[in-house]
Computed example of a mutant assay.
Amino acid sequence: MRMIVAVALVVTASGALADETGDAHRLALQRRDSYWNCLAREYSREGAQGMSAADFTADIASVCPSERQNFRVTLIGYLLLQYPDADSNSHLSTANRAIELAQKDIITAFIRHKAAK
């Protein structure tokens, strides 16, 4: 009987952890989308198309600070649940790299759009 109770507790705990991880993943994706949407608004705003590539790059690096930080924090939270034994600095590096790639993608789109004109 004790073995059944122990197994039931393990199964319940692992299910709860899976739910928590899934919730953290969904939240990280929502925050990623929020950050991307903010970057897209900056790309689309009136006056942005008249900027030089260097000015647009500097602008993108400074816009959407709360969305960027929310994405970073929720992504790190998800990574901590998904990979609890990994070094926390690697999670921070991964989150920062995801932010860099988002910025790079919007800057690349901007430059290509300007070149096509």
Rank of each mutant, 00 (worst) to 15 (best):
M51F: 00
Q49M: 07
A24D: 00
A116W: 04
A18K: 03
I107H: 04
T94D: 11
D105Y: 02
V63A: 03
L39Q: 09
L17A: 08
I60H: 02
V10W: 12
E42L: 01
S93H: 06
D33Y: 11
A109V: 05
T94C: 12
R112V: 10
A18I: 02
G22F: 01
F71D: 00
L92Q: 15
S93V: 10
N96T: 05
S52G: 13
T12M: 15
K117M: 09
L9P: 08
V63G: 04
E46D: 08
R97A: 07
A8N: 13
C64M: 10
A58I: 00
A48L: 00
M51N: 01
S90E: 13
A98V: 02
K117L: 13
L9E: 13
I111Y: 03
I99F: 11
R32D: 07
D55I: 00
A54N: 07
Y43T: 01
L81W: 02
A102N: 04
S14M: 14
A53W: 00
D33Q: 15
L79F: 02
A116H: 08
H113W: 08
N37P: 02
P84S: 03
A53D: 12
L81I: 09
S34C: 06
V7A: 15
T12P: 05
A115F: 10
A116Y: 02
A109H: 09
T74F: 06
E100T: 12
M1C: 13
E100Y: 10
M3F: 14
Q30S: 11
R112L: 09
A58R: 09
Q30D: 12
Q49L: 08
M1I: 09
R32N: 07
G47Y: 00
S93L: 12
S52C: 05
I60F: 01
L29K: 10
G47H: 00
K117S: 08
R41M: 15
V5E: 15
A109D: 12
D19Q: 07
T74G: 00
T74M: 07
L27R: 14
Y35P: 10
G22T: 01
E46M: 03
C38P: 07
L101W: 02
Y78M: 08
A116S: 09
L79D: 00
L39G: 10
L75G: 00
Y43N: 07
D33A: 15
I111W: 05
R2L: 13
L39A: 09
A116G: 05
T57A: 15
Y43M: 10
I4C: 02
L81H: 11
Y78K: 01
L79Q: 02
I76A: 05
N89V: 11
K117V: 05
L39H: 09
A116D: 08
A109T: 05
L80G: 03
S14F: 13
S44I: 02
T108S: 11
M3Y: 14
P65R: 07
